[in-house]
Design a protein around this nucleic acid. Structure first.
Lengths: 213, 213
DNA sequence: GAAGACCCCTACCCGCCGTCCGGGCCGGAC
DNA sequence: GTCCGGCCCGGACGGCGGGTAGGGGTCTTC
């Protein structure tokens, strides 16, 4: 049995959610709250599996308490009427594993609770859509290309180029890796030649695009 | 009525999918294919709304034809047995708006078809989960922070720092912006002081994190 | 209208970066 | 063994990068 706490400032919405979720055999609503503070208290006392959390609420809002609720051991599904990008960003960064609009059909709402309880994630279709877009354009395309370009480097060279990409000077790198500054320069020089780069800045850019640090 | 084409090399799978989808009142399966070439032909001939495309197939596989199928005007949902990261990356980059595992319950499969037909996206819960993780850590958090740090720069300074971030040398920047190399150095120096950076490499990193170019 | 603040430009000095050259070390080929 | 090639190290030079000081231009502010 999946134990759920419902949080929303309008009791009508709470009642509706309770009705929908209790209709499912494997879900039980063990508590309700009307604001962030109540949500946190209920979570600590009742130890639910999943907390449905409204984004906008008087007092402490949903996005603010989400991290603490999660820290208390519950999975969080954010609920909102409008799917603003900023809400989504903050929610996901806060650790929420679900983000649904309030017009979600009852059946999918229950499915989302089960999905989240099972350790997976569920987003509203419109959110998923935008996420895919940003993923496709800023996805691992450039990352893989950059990694490909870095392959001719020897392990030692790569190690040094990484330090370069952190913005360190040759002297600093030499101290950290316990070698002469001249040696660092030699490695950097070789890397520049292999990658056909003119600057150490270009090395740094490559490493960053490759997502190494 | 949503028109669907089903593509899989095993006719047993095709039959199963047809059975599941035809059970929905608002969905009809108008065609089947066993490989990528067939999928493309069917798509051009039948003009379906949605194409369910298996990833691994003999001959032309699903990931390869996906872009052409999409170009032909259909939405694509990728189907696979194993949710390997690489499949997901390639599929989404190819423009697929759905990615489901073959163990998806019939009800959700039909829901996915409707979701996609409506212009939205649907991913398997495990995929969504991993996507959120990578999004949360590498989200716009650092980007906004970096932009914030860059605000004290004057327009001219920012312009020059951008060129620095492209890996250009001071001389090259001077030529492109038609000014003395000494001027470039002064601007860079001011930027370094304002941002408390020690290197031009660190400037480049900031600009890259801010997603400017 | 004068002071001040801000931005843009320029000229010189020094330290760091990058190149060229060379040596020691370990692996495989024969 | 010997040769060979790749990798890691080091030293000495030229050039680029960065710091400092200062001049001219425009817009606010009193």
């Amino acid at each position: 049995m999946i134990r759920v706490v419902v949080v929303d400032d309008e009791h009508l919405v709470r009642a509706g959610l309770r009705l929908i979720l209790e209709a499912a055999e494997d879900i039980t609503v063990v508590g309700e709250a009307a604001d962030g503070a109540g949500a946190l208290e209920q979570t600590h006392r009742l130890r639910p599996d999943v907390v449905l959390l409204d984004v906008r609420m008087p007092g402490v809002d949903g996005l603010t308490v989400a991290p603490e609720v999660i820290a208390a051991g519950a999975k969080v599904i954010m609920l909102t009427t409008f799917d603003l990008d900023e809400y989504v960003h903050r929610a996901l960064r806060a650790g929420a594993v679900g983000f649904l609009l309030k017009d979600t059909p009852p059946r999918e709402l229950a499915a989302a609770v089960r999905t989240v309880a099972a350790g997976n994630a569920m987003l509203a279709p419109t959110v998923t859509r935008r996420m895919i877009s940003s993923f496709a354009e800023r996805g691992p395309a450039r990352r893989d290309a950059a990694r490909q370009r870095l392959t001719p480097l020897t392990p030692r060279e790569l190690e040094i180029v990484r330090e370069v990409a952190r913005g360190l000077g040759n002297a600093e790198i030499a101290r950290r890796l316990t070698m002469s500054e001249a040696t660092v320069k030699a490695h950097v020089s070789r890397a520049l030649a292999k990658l056909q780069a003119g600057n150490r800045v270009q090395l740094a850019i490559l490493v960053h695009d490759a997502d190494l640090l």
